[in-house]
Design a protein around this nucleic acid. Structure first.
Lengths: 356, 356
DNA sequence: TTGTACGCGTTATCAT
DNA sequence: ATGATAACGCGTACAA
């Protein structure tokens, strides 16, 4: 009796999960009676309900998610595909997604594309075969470069909801969540100028990443708006993962500027360090503002004024948009319309800029 | 004809995923014939196989993961539960897990416990109901404090493989992966002493986190081993998330020391900054070594000598152990035995320590 | 060579 | 009040 529940093993007792069928057999009723009894259906006698529920509690019955998914054609899982998890911004977005999703009873399956097109495609296909109800993703660098979005198109054509964030494309019709990069860069630059700086340099990345170019736009527009010339010589383009300082050192020696806008924290911190090493005071001689308000900004010396991107909020919004689509998908009532949400960033003022 | 494949929608054509049943109906054969044909079974005539395979390719047939999971009782998903994703160390471990798992054809479902016992329990239960084949996790702070591990016990009793990493407990019999915290602290301290320092302070956290206390052990043992006294006055215990510097400032004023071992990057960077602000030179007057070799260590001024914990390796090892168990679980052959793996850390030497 | 029947665990509909 | 049956999508042992 009950030997489905306890089965002896070499050194360990295994209490396998029990199913409706087990309960039914043990209590000598039908599976459907058990199912209804557990749902407190009033088709079932009080007596039977109590018996069944007691037994279920005793053996800690929990319905099998997979079976339910198969039946409902909904998994309550959402797939997240990001280029890199060891990256503060993506991590915070992920956290926002995870929190919101969890509140709504969804689990999150993450895949990392590692900035590779192929991995992105493989991961998407893997998850699209029934494992998830919808996708949230930021495109890999390679995907952006190749401009090939067939994998996204396939997924949306299958009716699987998709939300793109941060690294998006116009080629695909879907919900999107964006940072107001241009506006943020504009504001930061204007902030530097209004505090009395007249020669604002820009430290940005080589190659045209979507993000950097928007920030550059904002920088340029701010200069113009404030009646200053755009000095091309004050724009320094650095390799993404550069190690030696020679480039920037030369820049400091040869150019005259009194403020720098940097498209990320790292450039800013390295810039400040170099400047200080060369005898400049920060912010008196040169002010700095960076993007991505992470640990580096907070603990640099001096601490770095930085554009906070509210990744967590972004993730929550993305998850909200996705889950809305997923659940209305089920109603099939009204036709789709896609939104693009902009998450405002804000400037966190610290020591690397003087008060206006 | 074929109207299961294209169904008109308001403004969008939806190509729903097709199933074996669809193919069978369309080609007027049975489902099992289709199934076998797709597997290239030699029970099926070349002719039929080609017809079926062509059709499947055309309509991009992919088997439904959920159905397969239900059938096989294996999901090819692994559940990861960590206290916090916005934390460099956990993030790197996660990356290691994700990479290895992906190589082996597994997906990763992450849940964040947020250092909360309840969330940890809820997430585990959620995933344990069939969604995953095994768990990899680091215990939440609250769980460690409460010393309540029934949720882990339940899971292992159900025969679900579990691997604990970093934040583990002796109460549960399972595979474990650990950092050699004590040894690392020992080595770091010894390294400071051998470079000529005689009064090594320790900046650690208040309250007894497993991790910090092991590091403290190593620190103490190293002093003893090198024939130096343990000066209790040189051990500074700071709140986990402290903001004002008053505590440490007083410490710098009142104590005499020429080196500091810090249990994390942040304490080290803040310590260095304070020291420099008070006129000390780093490393000449005071050397610093931190734990967790992240961005802060690399970009601090001076850059910080730091204990690298190789989280990625740790994650890969954990995933390897888990998947091994998951797959042998299936054989049911030999009995379980659990291992504990130690991942060696290493010291990354930078500017905050002088050469021995 | 092809098809039937069953099972995975659940729920919903329709008998009894 | 209870149970039988079908269905979700797949694979496979067994029949035909």
């Amino acid at each position: 009796m009950l030997n489905f529940i306890r089965r002896d093993r070499p050194r360990q007792v295994v209490k396998k999960k029990i199913t409706l069928k087990h309960i039914a057999r043990e209590l000598d009723v039908s599976i459907s009676t058990v199912s209804k009894a557990l749902k407190n259906s009033d088709e079932i006698s009080q007596d039977t309900k109590e018996k069944v529920q007691a037994f279920a509690r005793l053996y800690n019955y929990k319905p099998n998610n997979i079976a339910i998914s198969l039946k409902n054609k909904r998994t309550k899982n959402i797939g997240v595909i990001i280029p890199d998890i060891v990256h503060h911004f993506f991590t915070t977005v992920f956290r926002g997604i995870e929190q919101y999703a969890n509140e709504k009873g969804y689990n999150v399956i993450v895949c990392v594309s590692d900035e590779s097109f192929d991995k992105e495609v493989i991961n998407m296909e893997m998850l699209a075969n029934g494992s998830i109800d919808g996708f949230i993703m930021a495109l890999s660098a390679e995907t952006q470069k190749r401009n090939d979005f067939n994998h996204l198109r396939e997924v949306t054509e299958q009716g699987i909801p998709l939300v793109l964030f941060d690294r998006v494309t116009d080629e695909i019709d879907c919900d999107k969540v964006l940072i107001d990069d241009e506006q943020a860069a504009f504001d930061a630059t204007a902030r530097l100028i209004r505090s009395g700086k007249r020669h604002v340099a820009l430290f940005t990345t080589e190659g045209y990443l979507n993000v950097s170019s928007k920030r550059e736009q904002g920088y340029r527009k701010a200069l113009v708006a404030e009646g200053l010339p755009v000095e091309e010589a004050l724009i320094l383009r650095l390799p993404y993962q550069f190690e030696e300082e020679s480039l920037s050192e030369a820049f400091f020696r040869e150019r005259r500027f009194d403020a720098v806008l940097c498209v990320n924290e790292i450039f800013a911190v390295r810039g400040m360090r170099l400047a200080q090493g060369m005898g400049y005071r920060v912010p008196e001689d040169i002010s700095f503002i960076g993007f991505t308000d992470g640990l580096l900004s907070r603990y640099a010396s001096p601490s770095l004024t930085s554009v906070a991107q509210h990744g967590e909020r972004m993730g929550a919004v993305a998850a909200e948009m996705l889950i809305e689509k997923v659940e209305q998908e089920y109603d099939e009532t009204d036709r789709k319309s896609y939104r693009t949400e902009i998450i405002p960033s804000s400037l966190v003022e610290r020591e690397s800029t003087a008060l206006g």
